[in-house]
């Protein structure tokens, strides 16, 4: 029981101190799960984070689920996940309710018009980062433009595009393996 509470409280703290997402959570995660509770060591933490990156869902939450599961089975994984998402639920519901009442304020409207431009720039920055990390060869370039064209100009649903991309990745891997096998 104490363990479950520790899991909830620990991931609640990690959630609340992760602002802006992504790698921002790692120092906080390390402080809680490695330094304070010794649930895992730093190397295991990075492995788990890597798994969280290549599985569906939100990386921070996936990491919480994994560590919670290692500590307390299915219940532990669920409780850690709840801890990680609780701050968001509380804070966003509060902000959304308050903002609703002020959204006709002229200054706020100007501010948000400017913010929306900054969001565009920030997302372009993310695209560039992802291209640098993920587009490494001709196939990557083809996949990038193929997906962009399918999403922008056709009604193909986004999940289908993701599944197709995964399938292309596997087929390319098999072909490479076959080629490599014939050469050796």
């Amino acid at each position: 029981m104490k363990k479950l509470w520790e899991l909830y409280a620990s991931f609640f703290r990690i959630g609340i101190l992760t602002i802006g997402g992504g790698l921002a959570m790692l120092p906080m995660l390390k402080r809680e799960v490695v330094d304070k509770y010794h649930w895992i060591n730093e190397e295991e933490m990075m492995d788990i984070y890597a798994i969280g990156q290549c599985t569906p869902g939100i990386i921070a939450v996936n990491t919480a689920t994994y560590i919670g599961y290692l500590q307390g089975g299915i219940l532990g994984g669920t409780i850690a996940t709840l801890g990680e998402v609780s701050p968001s639920l509380i804070i966003i519901i509060l902000i959304a309710s308050v903002l609703r009442q002020y959204m006709d304020n002229a200054v706020l409207l100007h501010a948000f018009a400017g913010i929306r431009i900054a969001v565009c720039a920030m997302m372009l920055d993310t695209v560039l980062l992802m291209i640098r990390k993920g587009v490494k060869n001709v196939l990557g370039v083809l996949l990038f433009f193929g997906a962009l064209i399918l999403a922008t100009f056709t009604p193909v649903p986004l999940p289908v595009i993701v599944i197709l991309a995964g399938a292309v990745g596997v087929i390319a891997f098999r072909l490479r393996k076959k080629e490599g096998g014939m050469k050796s």
Partner: peptide, 30 residues
């Protein structure tokens, strides 16, 4: 899991796509 070659292959295919889909979102937002 993340060292599994098939998982890596799937992810190699998906990563460029995620970048493209976010660019698609930027176009919509623009």
């Amino acid at each position: 899991f993340s060292d599994n070659p098939i998982v890596k292959a799937i992810f190699d295919g998906i990563r460029p796509t995620v970048a493209a889909l976010i660019l698609y979102a930027v176009l919509e937002l623009s």
